[in-house]
Measured scan of single mutants.
Amino acid sequence: DYYKILGIPSGANEDEIKKAYRKMALKYHPDKNKEPNAEEKFKEIAEAYDVLSDPKKRGLYD
């Protein structure tokens, strides 16, 4: 669930989505986080943001 990945409610607005994305992206960026699964988690976060930040894609997802 993209909302769960970003840690936001399904009714989140654009600003909340952007803030959550930035926070999670910094936390899991492969250059900052050396955990083995950090890169995979970072890709999931980027995919979630891509879908939820685009009103058309978000509409299809919801």
Rank of each mutant, 00 (worst) to 15 (best):
I5F: 04
E35N: 15
K41E: 13
L6C: 00
E44I: 12
I8W: 00
F42N: 11
D62T: 09
K27H: 15
E39G: 12
A20Q: 08
K32C: 02
E40L: 15
A20C: 05
I45Q: 00
D31G: 12
V51I: 11
E14P: 04
N13T: 09
D50W: 02
Y49R: 08
A38E: 09
S53E: 04
L52H: 01
L60C: 09
I8T: 11
Y2N: 04
D50H: 08
E16Q: 11
G7D: 09
E14H: 10
Y28S: 04
A20G: 07
I45N: 02
E40M: 14
F42V: 08
K57F: 03
I8C: 12
N37I: 01
P9E: 05
A12Q: 02
S10P: 06
E14I: 13
V51F: 04
P9L: 07
E44G: 13
E39N: 15
S10W: 06
G59S: 08
P30W: 06
A46C: 11
N13G: 08
M24P: 03
L6P: 01
K18Q: 14
I5C: 10
E16K: 09
P36A: 11
P36N: 11
G59H: 05
L26H: 14
P9W: 03
K43N: 07
K41Q: 08
Y21H: 07
M24Y: 10
H29Y: 07
P30C: 10
D1A: 07
K41C: 07
I45F: 04
M24G: 09
D31S: 11
S10F: 15
P9D: 05
K57A: 07
Y61F: 11
N37F: 09
K57W: 02
L60N: 12
Y61C: 14
L26V: 15
A25N: 11
K43G: 14
N13W: 00
G59E: 10
K34M: 12
L6Y: 00
Y49H: 03
K41P: 05
D62K: 06
K18N: 07
K18I: 05
A12R: 01
G7H: 03
Y21W: 07
K56N: 06
K41Y: 13
K57V: 02
A48V: 02
G59L: 06
S10C: 06
